[in-house]
Design a protein around this nucleic acid. Sequence first.
DNA 1: TGAAGACTTGACCAATCGGTCAAGATGAGA
DNA 2: TCTCATCTTGACCGATTGGTCAAGTCTTCA
Lengths: 221, 221
Amino acid sequence: MNKRRKSEKPVRLSRIQEMNRSRIIEAALGEFSRFGYSGATIDKISAAAGMSKSNLLYYFSSKSDVYEAVLEHILDVWLAPLRTLDPEGDPASELAAYIRQKMRMSAERPEASRLFANEVMQGAPQIRDVLEKDLKNLVTEKSKVIEQWIEAGKIRKIVPVHLIFTIWATTQHYADFDSQIRALTGTGLEDPAFFEEAENAVCSLILNGLGLEWPRKQTTS
Amino acid sequence: MNKRRKSEKPVRLSRIQEMNRSRIIEAALGEFSRFGYSGATIDKISAAAGMSKSNLLYYFSSKSDVYEAVLEHILDVWLAPLRTLDPEGDPASELAAYIRQKMRMSAERPEASRLFANEVMQGAPQIRDVLEKDLKNLVTEKSKVIEQWIEAGKIRKIVPVHLIFTIWATTQHYADFDSQIRALTGTGLEDPAFFEEAENAVCSLILNGLGLEWPRKQTTS
DNA sequence: TGAAGACTTGACCAATCGGTCAAGATGAGA
DNA sequence: TCTCATCTTGACCGATTGGTCAAGTCTTCA
C-alpha cells in the first residue's frame, strides 16, 4: 500500500502512480458528482478509470480515501477566484472579473461544483475543517475589502458576506441546477450565446444592485 | 398492497393509513434530504417513522415509491410562491414579496430545498416531466409578466429567466448551503437577526439591481 | 540478463440493502 | 362476541457493495 521507496525517499511518485492516481480522481469526480458519495461505487469508478477494482484499491486504501483525494484536488482551484479580489482595483471591474471567473468555472467544471454542493448539503463532514479555517479566513479578509469599498462610498451599503453568498449562489446555480435550466430553456452554459446571456444578467444585476456602472465589454453607445 | 375496498370505493384512506403514510413521508424527507436517494435506507426511514421496515413496505411498494411520494408531496408547496407573482401589482412589492416567501421557505423547510436540489443535481430523473411541463409553463407565464414590466419601463432590462434563476439561487442557497454558511458565520436562518439581515441583503441587491426603490419595512426617513 | 521491487488482476468474503412471505396482532362492524 | 379485513412484524433471500488476498505480470536497474 504505497510504501515509500527504500532509504526514505519521501513522497516521490512514479510516472505510473501519478498517471493512475489522476485517472482515478478524474473518474471518481464524475461518479461522485453524478450520484453522490453513497451512490457512487468503486466498481464503476474503476471501470471509468479503465482498471480493475483491485487496482484502484492498490492506489487508494478505501472509497472514502478516493473521495478525500477528489475533494482536496478540487478545493484549491475551486476557491482560487475569490483570492484574486484586489482591494486596490476598482470595485466594478474587480467584482465583474470575479463573477466572470466563477461563471467560467461553472461552465467548464460543473462536476466540481456539483461535488462541492453535494458535500456541503450533506453537512460538509469531510471539509468542515477547511471551511471553518481556510475559507473563513479568506471570506473574512475579502469582507473587509468590500467593507472598505462601502466606507469609501464606492458601492452601496450591504453586509459583505451576503454579497459573497449571492455571487456564489447565482454563479454555481448554473452548474448545480443545469438539468433544471436545460429543462426550462432547452440549453445550458456550454452554449456560448446562453453563457453570455447568463453572465450579462448576473453581472448587471449584482453590479447595478451595488450602485455601480457595469463595464460591459462591447458596449458601443 | 393498498387494495381498494370491495365495491370499488375509490381512493379513501383509513385514518391509520393516512397517519402512517404521512409519518413515513416526513421521515423519508429527512433521510433523503440528508443522504440523497442512494444514501438513504428504508431501514433508517422506517426507524425514524417509528415502525418496522416490513410495515413501511406495506404502505409503499418500494423505496423509489416512497421517494416519488415525498417529491410529489413537496413539489406543489415548493413551486407555489412563484404562482403568486401578480402582473397587476407593482414590481417592487411583488418581487419583494416573492423573495420573502422563498426566504421563509428556505428557513422553515430547508430539507425540502435540499431534497429538491439533490434530485435536480442528479439530472432530475424523477421530476423531469414536471419541470418540462408544469414548471416550464409557469416560468414562461411569469417571464412574460417580467417582460411587460420591462417594456413599461418599470424595471431595468434583463432576460426574465435569469432574474428568476437569480432569485431561486440566492434564496435556496441559504437552505442548501446551510452548513457552509454556519461554518463561516456561526449562525443560520433559524436566527431571526440573521434571517432579516439575509433577506434585506438579497432584496436590496436584486431590487436595486432592477432599478427599483426597495420598499423597506421599517424605514423612517 | 536476472532479481527485486512495482503493478495488476480474479477469486473470494462479510456486511448491508431492498424486498418477500407467512403468521400473528389489532381494529371495526354485525 | 364473532368474524374478517386491516395492520404489523421477524425471519429470510438474493443482489450489490466495500474490501482482502494470493498469485501472476511487468519495470527498472545493477
